[in-house]
């Protein structure tokens, strides 16, 4: 195919053009590098927040205590079935009978052990309970309401308030990082448009002659698009190095967690390579988009 035959020439031309306009290219590559570094940091941040949110959400458990009148059969079958029938409940739910609770507590401390040993077998003041995970944490309140209406359910506890607040906070952080990344990408696109416009301007005459002698618009566009991709790729080298080494060093320094053991960082491998490829892909795409738009104006005469 003809386009294929011309491809080698296009790539050669792109390298030539970047080196011919070296100072301009370096300027735009540095600008893109700076933006991509921020994009990389934002990506690392948002992935970690996302990860942290997932961990927290996974940890959120609804504890349901049944009242004293509950029979063993109700605990093991009827009420369990009622709860498991609820849409949002992750099946199977964990059952914890009062006997188990008692054993657990006795194992935990000698003080408990001493007291509880005096309790007769059939007179256990503890309650039977369920430990429930939900599929969608945002509907947890609704699910809790439904559980509360079930007969013989006495107490439902899930850290009310705290969970909602956490969810709100995560949503906010996620939104902000998405907005920052989006704005940065738009800024980078405009940057590349302007850079390529300058290199195109110096080749205006060439382009108009190409149009005049019958070059198709695509074949005129392709070298500039390749040039944009090249600038994007070159611009992503430093950000990739920063992401890979920066994050690894950070992870080492903090021992894989932030402030407390609760906030776990994503382990660097393969995470940093995923972020690095994302930065490269964003750089190349943005370069492509910018140059494609920049050259359009010259293809109308």
């Amino acid at each position: 195919m003809k386009l294929f035959r011309m491809f080698g020439r296009y790539v050669r031309d792109a390298f030539k053009s970047v080196s011919r306009n070296l100072s301009l290219s370096i300027a735009s590559i540095s600008c893109i590098s700076i933006t991509l570094i921020v994009v990389g940091i934002a990506l690392v941040l948002s992935f970690n927040v996302d990860n942290f949110a997932k961990i927290i959400k996974r940890d959120v458990t609804i504890v349901v205590f049944l009242n004293q009148e509950t029979t063993e059969d109700e605990f093991n079958h009827t009420i369990k079935a009622k709860i498991e029938k609820l849409q949002n409940v992750e099946k199977p739910i964990v059952l914890k009978s009062k006997e188990e609770s008692k054993k657990e507590m006795m194992a935990e401390s000698d003080v408990f052990k001493a007291t509880m040993e005096t309790w007769p077998e059939e007179d256990n003041p503890l309650r039977d309970s369920y430990l429930i995970k939900v599929k969608d944490i945002e509907q947890i309140k609704d699910t809790v309401q439904k559980i509360k209406t079930i007969d013989k359910v006495e107490v439902v506890d899930y850290g009310e308030g705290m969970v909602e607040q956490l969810i709100e906070a995560f949503k906010l952080v996620e939104k902000i990082t998405i907005i920052i990344v989006a704005i940065l990408i738009v800024v980078t696109v405009f940057l590349i448009i302007n850079t390529i416009k300058l290199t195109i301007f110096s080749r205006k005459r060439e382009i108009s002659i190409m149009r005049l002698v019958g070059a198709s618009n695509i074949s005129i566009k392709i070298p500039f698009i390749i040039e944009g991709m090249l600038i994007g790729a070159l611009g992503s080298i430093i950000p990739i190095v920063v992401v890979i080494y920066g994050y690894s060093a950070l992870y080492e320094k903090f021992g894989g967690q932030l402030f407390s053991a609760l906030i776990k960082l994503i382990s660097p491998e393969p995470f940093i390579y995923i972020v690095a490829s994302a930065v490269l892909v964003i750089g190349i795409l943005v370069g492509m988009l910018g140059s494609g738009r920049a050259v359009r104006k010259y293809l109308k005469v």
Binding site: L3, R5, M6, R9, S219, I220
Partner: peptide, 10 residues
């Protein structure tokens, strides 16, 4: 030659 290169001649 530019005119022929621009249209992808051999």
């Amino acid at each position: 030659a530019f005119a022929l290169e621009a249209i992808g001649a051999r």
